[in-house]
Design a protein around this nucleic acid. Structure first.
Lengths: 337, 337
DNA sequence: TGAATTTCCGAGAACGTTCTCGGAAATATT
DNA sequence: AATATTTCCGAGAACGTTCTCGGAAATTCA
């Protein structure tokens, strides 16, 4: 597969590579006639620009990399769409990469993108990631990078976050106000800042309403539906039946709910459920699941904007944190009639 | 932000760039001692390899691009995971790009990747794409590219497809055998080969069982849940109530089902539903939705393998088509008791 | 008509790597 | 001890672009 280069075009037209290059880059110092001629013959010859060479001399790629842990749930896809909207408008391309919740591939992805493939990075950490040294070094080296949603408090860098504490508290309070007293929290993966914040909201809601609360009411697991199912089965086996469950995401809530339903419990009469990060699926199940809706699209947009600002500013930027709010969508799964 | 290059390292160590390069590339003609020294100081100096330069001289990137129309549904994410598994093992990186069902951005994505960003491409066309000239040219130029799922019969290139005809026929026959006689087909977007194949299966099942069939039983729309809802509302308004619906995907089926349910129809007693491309959501709704399960993971793996073969073979490859089979998962939504 | 200005173009360096080639030093072989 | 072989390294071209600089040709101005 022989590539056509601007040299070939120049030779054919008996001109110089400079002229050909000028034609492609909308430079002013070229006559309209020759420009047209170059463009025409380039097309005829099947010329395709070599971005590697171009990027090499220009030292920028107009690519932005996005690293997410997964996209089987619609959460990250929606964030990505938000980011794309901003980035496309500014002429950037978006390269997405998926870590599969695995720290090693996450690192490989980042390194691959970071090495002059992209001008900046949007990243949400995998649930496995617990070592942030590499990222901190990268940030310190001046590489433009924005963390969103899944991140660590300790990282000193720009972030776009959801106000997990506040909305976890709201969600819990909603349950308390409905009269539920023995509420359990499925916190998912313990180590993530986001989990800690949601748990803190859960606990503080209890304090605020002077409700007793015991450590055993918070249960750690993964983030998948299967985890929710397992926990529910365990609770039923131990015969410790909560009257409400607040889960750190919809998957956990739905998993648990389906098991409880299968065992004859009525939702929300016997046991109520509230999820988090509203998923489309949540509103389709029976009964529809109450959940905290995150502004996914907006998260993506904000992160992209922050990144572009940072790229513009060069080394002279200061880390910024944007914290966004959402809504609590109350549905049947948590409504005492 | 000043980048450290191998020249800087060479200067510091009073050696040549060749030696430094050798150290990084596991070449044999370098002593273990100097290699270690180079690697150590490189790390100290914060060296990061410039992939642009490397790729430029090597004329390959070890990147594979994937272009999908969307990933809000889990179908494409699962395919991607399958592809990643194969590609990672062979040392390739994966760059994903999303067209948002828009031909223009699809083309932009492809062009951006094609221009020496990747060694090959895996692509599933957007629903809007109806001009395949660009792709055919690309294939003819020798660029390694595999089409999967959403493609056109007319494109002469390697493909990984699902046996849509066969399984649409199975699904329809299942309904017929259950005793349903007035079956409608929601075919989604008409122009896609995949839609045509599924419709052909639907029609031929009728022929095979000597069931009368009228053109009005096939309804065209988009592929989203909202489209299913609209169609159902329309059918109800016109008072043309099918006794079963076979939809080209789960979203359409679920959309329609929810509207029928809202209007008091009992599923599957009054009206049955079968979807396609089984989604996780389908098994969570009430009643659980029957659907044809596609081997998403396997599709990704096969496509990746085909692509790697093609890259190996260089220009000397012949287009190949792999057609995969699935399973019909029968659930309550189509089970006459 | 001659000078000043503008328009257009070519030569060649630069970007950061890899890779081939030739050769010096070290080691093995006779 | 002399030769043959192996091990290791440096010089410099090459990859395909962009970009600066200088200058010729064309145009404008007086």
């Amino acid at each position: 597969m022989k590539y056509i280069t601007i040299k070939d075009i120049a030779k054919k037209l008996n001109t110089s590579v400079s002229t050909v290059s000028r034609a492609f880059n909308d430079k002013s110092d070229i006559s309209a006639k020759t420009k047209e001629l170059v463009l025409k013959t380039a097309k005829e010859m099947g010329y395709r620009q070599n971005r590697m060479a171009k990027n090499l001399v220009q030292k920028r790629t107009y690519n932005i990399g996005i690293v997410v842990p997964e996209f089987v749930n619609s959460f990250f896809p929606e964030v990505i769409m938000g980011a794309q909207e901003v980035l496309f408008k500014k002429g950037y391309q978006v390269l997405i990469t998926q870590s599969n919740e695995c720290y090693t591939t996450e690192l490989k992805n980042v390194q691959s993108l970071e090495n002059s493939m992209v001008d900046g990075l949007l990243i949400s950490l995998s649930s496995e990631t617990d070592n942030i040294d590499y990222y901190q070094d990268l940030v310190n080296s001046g590489f433009p990078i924005i963390f969103f949603n899944r991140t660590y408090k300790e990282i000193k860098a720009s972030k776009v976050l959801f106000n997990d504490y506040k909305w976890a508290m709201f969600a819990t309070e909603h349950l308390i106000r409905q009269g539920y007293k023995n509420i359990y929290h499925l916190q998912g993966i313990k180590s993530l800042t986001l989990s800690k914040e949601r748990r803190r909201g859960f606990v503080d809601a209890h304090k605020k309403h002077k409700l007793t609360y015991d450590k055993s009411q918070v249960i750690t697991s993964g983030f998948h539906m299967e985890d929710g199912e397992k926990i529910a089965a365990q609770l039923i086996e131990n015969n410790t039946i909560p009257d409400a469950i607040f889960a750190a995401n919809d998957q956990l809530a739905m998993g648990a709910m389906s098991v409880f339903k299968k065992h004859g419990f009525k939702v929300p009469k016997d046991i109520a459920f509230v999820g988090f990060s509203e998923s489309k699926m949540g509103s389709m199940v029976e009964p529809p699941l109450s959940s905290v809706k995150q502004p996914t699209f907006e998260i993506g947009k904000q992160a992209a904007k922050l990144l572009l600002d940072q790229i513009e500013a060069g080394t002279k930027h200061t880390p910024q944190t944007v914290k966004l709010d959402g809504e609590l969508h109350i549905r049947e799964s948590s409504l005492k009639k």
